[in-house]
Amino acid sequence: MKLVTATAILSFAASGASAQNQCAAGKTIDDGVLTVATGNPAYYPWVMDDAPESKQGFEAAVAYAVAERMGFADDQVTWVRSSFDQAIQPGAKDFDFNLQQYSITPERDEIVDFSAPYYSAAMAVLTRQVIVDLGAEANIDALRSLKWGADANTTAVPMLAEVIAPESDPLLYGDNADVVEAMKAGQIDAALFDLPTALYLSAVVLDDGVILGQFPAERSESPDQFGMLLEEGNPLKECIDAAIAEMTADGSLAAIEAEWLSETTGVPVIQ
């Protein structure tokens, strides 16, 4: 195994195509290529038009920026698709890192590795105009009496129980589309999403979608931060962390965020 890697590095270095910095060289699953995974489909505004290769969308842009810092040119980045379950299953991974709004939690960190956070997500309440007309308000007491839903695979589920503690048990679904469908069917009044996702759903998917308000990222004891998911013990982690630290320090990460997630400012905060 080591021998193979060593020869691969040698032959690669000899070919002269190497552009990786010291850190990342030889640590990717395919030498000289960075394999990045995203969701299937990948959603706006994280990836535009489900086409991460276009570099359009927040996560696509972050992935290319991190790749560039590690010395991978744009054409040295390939994309694969993965579900959450595929990302956490034991065994070899088919990606170097996987970014699709994975919240970093200590429990998840025991099974897989996370990079340093690249985004701090506020949670937002998505509802419909009819519910607002019926008197739903952006305060905890009013929210408590609503019928809630959430995507079962997200940290919105514990957040719902902790921060809002609804009077009736929430209904949980397999993905965003199902939550929206239940909302259209009137089976739930409101749902909790990360803010950019909630903005997308209210603007594009729901005809009468309304963002009632947001819980700032700092509100809960453990803020919801997105990290890139890596196989447990992946040596590439330190290179990615270094790249993200650099981007945070020189403001380029904030610039990408401003470019793609600027709408998130101006959403009222729930008291």
Binding site: I111, A152, V157, L172, G174
Partner: peptide, 20 residues
Amino acid sequence: FIGPVEIFRQAGVYKSLLAN
């Protein structure tokens, strides 16, 4: 799949939170 949190969904929630 359409909302009720029965055993399969509950297991899915745990799976997601604990990545296990």
